[in-house]
């Protein structure tokens, strides 16, 4: 490839020959770097890059398992407690979606279903697939697709927070003596689950996809 452009440092060092596969982007500043093995640090921002090669996927696995465990109580306990004139009504995430659907607010029901059920479950499955596939040879031929899958989880991941924010807004707005909306235990569990899924996605080392070609 042609790199004979204006370069202020030209001539000071000898020509380096490098394999294209050895080039990795810095996770912090996106600068292209040469993979030098275990003690990498970015040439532009100086940040440590992929230092945890010896336990490359374990960190991500740990976060992911925490998220999956927290997702169980998030679905079992009530998310929203509505108490109106003495009667208390508790609804779980799925129950809330069903209730909204029955009341006829289809768009909102779909949004909540996508954000609180589809996206988290999809993220779990994609991350599990990615984490397994970088260690064991499955889906070898689809290298580009795996990067796109990872990109997808990064982009849609934060949107699962919608339900938490909605519950926070409802609880803050409606607290009269006769009508009151309260957040339930599931809110904490779900927030933890989303938080750890985001951490798991961030901890995933994208260069591993390349290495196991």
């Amino acid at each position: 490839m042609d790199v004979e452009k204006e370069n202020p440092f030209r001539g000071r060092e000898t020509v380096i020959e490098i394999d294209e596969d050895k080039l990795i982007p810095c996770p912090v500043c996106d600068a292209v770097n040469i993979d030098k093995g275990k003690k990498n640090s970015c040439r532009r921002c100086g940040c440590a890059m992929y230092h945890h090669r010896s336990f490359s996927t374990e960190k991500s696995w740990a976060y992911l398992l925490t998220a999956i465990i927290a997702y169980i109580p998030a679905n079992l306990y009530p998310m929203l407690i509505t108490s109106a004139f003495g009667t208390k009504e508790e609804s779980t995430i799925l129950g809330g979606v069903v209730l909204l659907w029955e009341l006829g607010s289809y768009p909102v029901a779909v949004i909540i279903f996508l954000a609180s059920i589809m996206i988290p479950v999809m993220k779990f499955l994609i991350l599990i697939y990615l984490l397994i596939s970088v260690k064991y040879p499955i889906g070898k031929d689809k290298k580009a697709n795996k990067h796109k899958l990872y990109y997808l989880t990064e982009v849609v991941g934060p949107w699962s927070m919608i339900d938490i924010f909605v519950v926070a807004i409802l609880a803050a707005l409606i607290h009269l003596s006769s009508i009151e909306i309260l957040a339930g235990t599931a809110a904490t569990a779900f927030a933890i689950s989303v938080f750890f899924t985001l951490l798991a996605a961030h901890a995933f080392d994208e260069t591993l996809i390349k290495e196991n070609k």
Binding site: D2, F9, R12, I16, I18, V32, R43, A144, H147
Partner: peptide, 24 residues
């Protein structure tokens, strides 16, 4: 692939979405 030095890597960029090496 030949490079003059490490700073010549600034002329390249790796795509976020599909991880392809592109020349700037």
């Amino acid at each position: 692939m030949k490079l003059e030095n490490e700073d010549a890597l600034d002329n390249f960029i790796i795509c976020h979405k599909c991880y392809t090496l592109n020349e700037e």
